[in-house]
Computed example of a mutant assay.
Amino acid sequence: MSFDDLEAKMRAEPRKQERFGELVKGPYLDKVVAANRAYLTAAVPEPAATERDHWALSCQPTTNGGRLSTINMRRMETFVLLPPEGTDEDVWGFMVVRDSVLSRYAGAGQGIEERYPDLTFDRARRYQDAGDDQVQVFGRYDELIDALAEEPFAAAARELATSLLTGRTNNARHHNYQLADRVLGRSST
């Protein structure tokens, strides 16, 4: 089977189309697209060239209950978005980045946590593929977008992604082309 045949088959999978359709009908599509676009822009050079084989974007995956989207590289999640948890909440999520890179950008007498008080940093959770130099950063989708627009987070996300993009993701079969098309600006439908 050729790559084009495989892509056509994956695009036509009814369950993937249903999940994307559910996202389109709900209130979170624009937020999911914007946040995933910000992450891929900051972290992945030429995302279209490495799509599906080196990173995969799932749409409303059934793992870990209720996710809106997940970007995977190798065997790990690098960027996850979740629906609001409470009535006053908004779309939120986390990204995994290089901790040492964030530390280099911390100001004199000010840690990275003090520079970004709206974000939460978790150094206890570990993904094997990322090694010891990692931190999970949690926040609302707009806070994550704002952080990724700044060099400390863009560099930290890019450095981690660069190490992961050298191998294939084991989540290629879960890649949702309809959502990826929106995120990568290939389609407005």
Rank of each mutant, 00 (worst) to 15 (best):
V44M: 04
R75N: 15
L81D: 04
P47T: 11
L23M: 13
E77Q: 13
F94G: 03
A38F: 05
F20H: 04
V33P: 02
L40P: 05
G86R: 09
R52D: 07
G93H: 00
L68Y: 01
R19C: 09
G66Y: 03
G66W: 00
A48E: 15
D90N: 09
L40D: 08
D99W: 11
A38S: 10
T50S: 01
R37D: 08
A49M: 08
A35P: 00
V97P: 06
R67N: 08
G93E: 05
E22A: 11
D30L: 09
V24E: 15
T41R: 05
T50Q: 11
A49C: 07
D99L: 12
A34H: 02
M95I: 13
L40V: 13
P84A: 13
P47F: 10
N36V: 07
V33N: 03
V97D: 07
E46G: 06
L29N: 08
D53G: 10
Y39Q: 11
V97Q: 02
W55S: 01
T70Y: 03
E22C: 03
K31T: 15
V96L: 08
F20M: 11
S58F: 09
V80R: 06
A48N: 07
K16D: 07
V97S: 05
E22V: 07
A49N: 12
A35V: 12
M73L: 10
Q17R: 15
T41G: 12
L40N: 05
F79V: 01
Q17D: 08
V32T: 04
E22Y: 00
D88T: 13
A49Q: 14
E85S: 11
I71V: 14
K16L: 14
G86W: 03
Q60S: 10
L29I: 12
L82K: 09
L40K: 06
D99Q: 14
T63Y: 13
C59I: 02
P83L: 12
M76P: 05
V80F: 08
G65N: 13
S69Q: 07
V44N: 01
R74K: 14
G21S: 15
V91P: 06
S69G: 05
N36R: 02
L57M: 12
E18H: 11
